[in-house]
Write a protein that binds this DNA or RNA. Sequence first.
DNA 1: ATCCTGAAGAGAACCGGTTTTCCACCTTAC
DNA 2: GTAAGGTGGAAAACCGGTTCTCTTCAGGAT
Lengths: 360, 360
Amino acid sequence: MRTSTTPGASAEETGSPVVRGRARLIDVAERSGVTKSIVSRIMNDDETLRIRPETRDRVKAVAEELGYRPHAGARALSVSRTGAFALLIPDLTNSVYAAIMRGAFRRARERGYFLLIAEDTPESPAGPDDYADLVVSGRVDGLLVASARPGSPLVERLMDDPGSIAHVYVNREVEGSGRNIGLDMYGASALAVDYLAGRGHADIGITAGPVDLHPARSRLAGFVDRMTEKGLDASRIEHGDFTERGGFDAATALLQAHPQLTAIYASTFGQAVGALKAARQHGLRVPEDLSVIGYDDLAVADYLDPPLTTVAMPLDALGVAAVDALVEQLATQTPTGVRVPDDCRIVERESVAAPRASVR
Amino acid sequence: MRTSTTPGASAEETGSPVVRGRARLIDVAERSGVTKSIVSRIMNDDETLRIRPETRDRVKAVAEELGYRPHAGARALSVSRTGAFALLIPDLTNSVYAAIMRGAFRRARERGYFLLIAEDTPESPAGPDDYADLVVSGRVDGLLVASARPGSPLVERLMDDPGSIAHVYVNREVEGSGRNIGLDMYGASALAVDYLAGRGHADIGITAGPVDLHPARSRLAGFVDRMTEKGLDASRIEHGDFTERGGFDAATALLQAHPQLTAIYASTFGQAVGALKAARQHGLRVPEDLSVIGYDDLAVADYLDPPLTTVAMPLDALGVAAVDALVEQLATQTPTGVRVPDDCRIVERESVAAPRASVR
DNA sequence: ATCCTGAAGAGAACCGGTTTTCCACCTTAC
DNA sequence: GTAAGGTGGAAAACCGGTTCTCTTCAGGAT
């Protein structure tokens, strides 16, 4: 687009800078009487640069005056680094991911990166090509993949050639990838079982998630194992999507199949909301007739009826850890996985009580 | 970073392409025996290019084989266009924005843009500089501002120099900007009043939003005007944040100040959730003792107790319209505002009924 | 006077594209 | 036989930075 902008054409006569859209490195250089290499090295705090303090100050003042901002594309071209990551989210409307996004976003800014957030659902792919091309085309430096589904085109591609595209898996782990940033969901499930059992529950059901998702499997495994350890019946399982609807359907099936159930452990927050509705439709009061515990502690939990007791997970810490891992991966060229320290805990509200026919 | 990558160094001997991170334009050119200018023009479907069909096919085949993807930074540098927008959201955890994001994201992709999403809260600014620098530094081509707050540094800066930074205001309008993409919130409020009045309600209160936010003012004005038109008392107003907490507080104050209230109109979905809780705490059954209607129709409305009747707004259409307006602004260099056609409507669920002491 | 040294900055190549200009060659017409 | 005109593609400038190498000049030592 050579629109003959001849920058500073009139400035040469007037001595004042012509009004341009943006100041470039060379504008700063000319105006302070040095070359652009010097300006560049000053702006980037080049340690190897020997320069008179007064020159440095003058250049910095001019840059400030002109509102100089380096052109991201030009810099990316030069240093082969964009300073941006892409975060792939399976569902933007799910507040759980909002919490992860928030942590990741903040941490990215702290480490000098911007975050490009994209919704990556099975239905709406990126278009002709997938999100891995964001890296190949030099738009971002790496991928934070929270949307991994085994067998999806993206995951296949990343597994095929793990070296050329920096990435980590967040929340949804991919086994064998060695770059999973996850929470101790297994332990969280065990904690939930302990909590319910501690209140006297023995007939506990679980609304589990889709079997192909790693988080669903971990949570279910933690539930089954701890139930079994305690000598309780771990067979009250119904699967459903990780949505309100899925939780409603699964809980309904659970209540029909096992009328003696006194507690339900829902695998996600959304499922718990659905389970509450299922209980109402069955004429069951929560927590008097049925206890419900959910996963992930969101702000709305306080405002449900009854306020929902949850297993709180450090979701923003997950986002933070993911960004840290990706930054480190770029620095060392070696992927690492992290299990975020599990300070998961039960947030007690009012949806859990002792079972109605407690035999204590 | 001149790491002497001498692309294709060994390829010259072996005849096969050396394994590189990415294929460049010149790699495609050399491999197909033409110059990079030709490849560029072929890949961009340059109409003015006269070329032998076989050459075109050969080049395209090579590009495909090498998995060539143009480098975004290099292209941005050359054409002064990045192919990305930034969407500034005030609260990532608010599902209302998720709906807008979704519409905007999809539409952006359709029009060849990526979306960089950023959370722009009053507390956590962008850092040393604000989000307008995303445009100045050539990282994105324009801003979709859904986080406008009058007097905020960003809005001030955009108002100061509206010409140099392409942007539109989404949802939260800025008066006098001429680039507002909004919904008919005024009309939606009137619709809610009509609906409640049609069910026999006369004592209607509103949980309004923060007075400095345009949506809050529009919704309140629509309420007040329509109430007044109908000869009803339009003074039952309490302000609160656009959150569950704000709705809870405002509704609590409303119920204490006006015990005769039979209906509450909540200015946001979150406020409605808070209002439901406030009703419960006051020992009021919804909808028998108190009707509640909320704003924006989210999926969870079905799962609240009772299921929440709402005024549904075309949120994804808002996102779509915003992207369209921004694309057009870049093309014509003239900002435009749009009021998204108001196909807003009442979604009836179970939180509204005739007032308990209906005098019909 | 000359040589050396270090400080301060100039100059140029390069990153990977896009776009304008120009040129060689082949036809066709005269 | 040659000029005109069209075809197909080559060459080079440019976008705005970064970084490596080279030059100049002053001052001190010899």
